[in-house]
Write a protein that binds this DNA or RNA. Structure first.
Lengths: 219, 219
DNA sequence: CTCCGTTTGTTGAAATTTCAACAGATATTC
DNA sequence: GAATATCTGTTGAAATTTCAACAAACGGAG
C-alpha cells in the first residue's frame, strides 16, 4: 500500500490524516486495490451502490447511455479523485451510471458502511473520515449548484456572462484565468463551441471584456 | 417547541429520531426559532454560512440576482425542508444566494458545528444526526446529477424523453404520474412551456407516448 | 526556424427555440 | 351549476443555436 501514499493523501477523503495513521486505517476499512485494463467496467450501471472508489493510477470516465443510444461522458476521473460516494451515501440500491477505465488503471475500493460505522476496534479516525466525506459531498453539491446557475440561463451570452462574473467574484478580481479551453468551456456551459467563440468576440467588440485564450478581464 | 414536533419529524435531519429524544436534542444543539415577515431576508447573500435552516411554517424562496439584474428563483422552501446545509458543511465562508420569506414564516436555525461536533454532554444522538445530514447531502447531489443529466441534452425532445424514461425507470413502470405541471416541468427541463407542449403533442402523434396532464405512458 | 497538430475564430444556412397571443379544457369558488 | 381563474395546447414570426467547413493563431518537436 505504501506506494499509494502520495495519491491517497491528495484524496479529499483522507485530508487531515497523517501518513502513520493511513496504513492501519486502510486495513480497518478493508480497502482493496483492484486493477482494470482499458475499457473494462469498474462499476456497471445497475450494480449495488456499496463501494466508494478512489482512482490510484490511470483514469476512467463516468458514462451513461441515454434513450437515443448516445453515450454521454458525465465526467472524467483522475488519480486522487473519488467516485460513487454520492450513490453509496444516499443509499440508493443501485448506481445509475457506469464507470469505465479509460486506460489501464488501479482503483481503491472501500465499502461505504466501513467508513460510516465505527469498527469494533473503535478506531478514533472515523470521526475525521466522516467529516471529510461530508465536506466532499457538500462541495459537490455546491459545484452542481454553480453549474446549474449558469446553464439554466437561456442564451449563450447570458451563460457566459454568468459564468465569468461568478469566476471574477470568486477570484476577487476582474482579471482571471479560467480552467477550461474553449471546447471544455462550451461543454460546461452546454453550448456550441463556435457560438461561444462568436459570443466572446462580440463582447470584446462591445467593450464588455478583454480576453486572450484562457485569460479574461471584465471591464 | 412542542408545537413544531410534527413538522420537525418530517425533516430529513431528524429521521430515525424519536419524539422523546427530540426536545432535549434541540436544547443541546442550541436550536433557535426565528420569525420573519413577508419579504424579509432570512439569509443574505454574503453572510457567513454557519447555520442550517429548517422551515417550520410559511415558505421562502432561494433567490439570486444575476449579472443582468434579473432575480432568479433557484428553489422554493416549504415546511420541513432544510436549507443552507451545503454551504455550512462545505465550509465556504459566505453564502452565494439569498433566502427570502415568501409569506410570514418561522424558521429553526441550528449552527452546523453543533451538529458535527459532539457536545460536552456527549449525547448519543450526534451519530444519527451526522448520518442524516450526510444522507441529505448525498441525496441532493443525486438530484442535481439527475437534473444535469436531463438539461444537458440540447433539444426539447431529448430533454423530455430523457426525463420521462428516467422517471419510468425509477417508478419501475411505463405508466407514471409526474410531480410537475407543464410550467414546472418546463422550468425543470429549462425549456419553453409552449415548445414543451408542442413536443408532447408530436410524440403522442408519433405513437411514442400517451399522456394526459401529469399522467404519462411510454409505448 | 519550420513543420505540424491543436486550438480558436468566422461564417452562412438549416434547425430549433423563444415569444406573444389566443382558444379550449379543466379546476375552483360561491 | 354558473362564473371565474388556471392550465394546456396551438400557431407563426423573430431570434438564437447548431452544424459544417474553413481560416487564422498558437505551441511543440525536431
Amino acid at each position: 500500500m505504501k506506494k499509494y501514499f502520495e495519491v491517497l493523501q491528495k484524496c479529499p477523503l483522507f485530508s487531515h490524516i497523517s501518513e502513520e495513521q493511513l496504513l492501519p486505517m486502510l486495513g480497518c476499512l478493508g480497502a482493496k486495490v483492484v486493477s482494470f485494463d482499458k475499457k473494462y467496467t469498474i462499476f456497471a450501471e445497475g450494480a449495488p451502490a456499496k463501494h466508494i472508489g478512489i482512482m490510484l493510477s490511470g483514469s476512467a470516465q463516468v458514462i451513461q447511455v441515454d434513450y437515443f443510444g448516445n453515450r454521454t461522458i458525465l465526467t472524467g476521473i483522475s488519480p486522487s479523485e473519488m467516485f460513487g460516494e454520492a450513490f453509496a451515501c444516499a443509499e440508493v440500491g443501485s448506481i445509475p451510471v457506469s464507470v469505465v477505465a479509460n486506460e489501464p488503471c488501479e482503483v481503491m475500493l472501500i465499502e461505504c458502511d466501513h467508513i460510516l460505522h465505527t469498527c469494533s476496534n473503535n478506531c478514533g479516525f472515523h470521526q475525521q473520515l466522516i467529516f471529510n466525506l461530508m465536506k466532499d459531498l457538500a462541495t459537490k453539491t455546491l459545484l452542481f449548484h454553480q453549474k446549474i446557475e449558469v446553464t439554466s440561463k437561456r442564451t449563450t451570452r447570458e451563460k457566459l456572462m454568468t459564468y465569468l462574473t461568478g469566476q471574477a467574484k470568486r477570484m476577487g478580481s476582474t482579471s482571471f484565468t479560467i480552467p477550461f479551453n474553449r471546447q471544455e468551456l462550451a461543454d460546461y456551459l452546454e453550448v456550441e463551441r463556435s457560438g461561444l467563440s462568436a459570443e466572446i468576440s462580440k463582447l470584446r467588440a462591445e467593450g464588455i471584456l478583454e480576453s486572450n485564450r484562457k485569460q479574461f478581464r471584465l471591464l
